[in-house]
Design a protein around this nucleic acid. Structure first.
Length: 181
DNA sequence: CGGGTTTGACCGGCGC
DNA sequence: GCGCCGGTCAAACCCG
């Protein structure tokens, strides 16, 4: 139904980082940004007229005893849903890119897409494919400026970035070789 | 055939 | 209590 993913240009690997990215991401150095209030986005006051607290408030977890319930025998639906680690860190930053998903070195699997209100572009939900890593991220294109992509990371990877490592390994070996002399 | 994407349904929180 | 809304699940589908 949507067709905004078609006219993407072949410059998919070129992007412009508009806000400081999390330190664990091997991204380009950030560029100055002035007219984007991503701080309000980080602080959870993203709404213009109705500033609701964006459900990332601390505390209010206390749900450690309700997983694996059998409400219906015939419906094996939704064993454990939404383990909300509300205290996990979240990072949001913006890039200017023609491609929605930027290559940050990690492997992501898309698990949902939703149209949020007051936005003309759907929001995509990704999850890290590493076995024990449950880092999630949301990718959304701004309806104001359709060339800007907002990426929100939820959590911190507990494993090295494999693409970064395989890029760094030859360099490290060469450094080890050079340091002998 | 295995892994990723699509897509509609479902769930829970929140406001009224 | 009800409905809206955002986040997630999972079956179907797609693709190399």
């Amino acid at each position: 139904m949507d067709e905004q993913t078609h006219q993407l240009q072949p410059q998919n690997s070129s992007y412009e980082l508009l806000t400081p990215a999390p330190s664990f991401l091997p991204l380009h150095p950030q560029l100055p940004v002035d007219d984007i209030d991503w701080i309000s986005l980080l602080s959870g006051q993203v709404g213009d007229q109705n500033n609701r607290p964006m459900m990332m408030g601390s505390g209010s977890d206390g749900k450690g005893a309700d997983q694996e319930k059998e409400k219906g025998n015939d419906k094996p639906r939704k064993s454990s849903r939404m383990m909300k680690r509300s205290s996990r860190p979240r990072f949001a930053f913006q890039t200017r890119s023609a491609d929605d998903i930027l290559d940050d070195g990690y492997r992501w699997r898309k698990y949902g897409q939703k149209a949020v209100k007051n936005t003309s572009f759907p929001r995509s939900y990704y999850r890290c494919t590493y076995h024990t890593c449950n880092v999630k991220k949301q990718v959304q294109r701004l309806s104001k400026d359709t060339s800007i992509v907002v990426t929100t990371y939820d959590g911190i990877h507990n494993h090295p970035c494999e693409k970064l490592m395989e890029t760094l390994t030859p360099l490290l070996k060469q450094m080890q070789f050079l340091v002998r002399f």
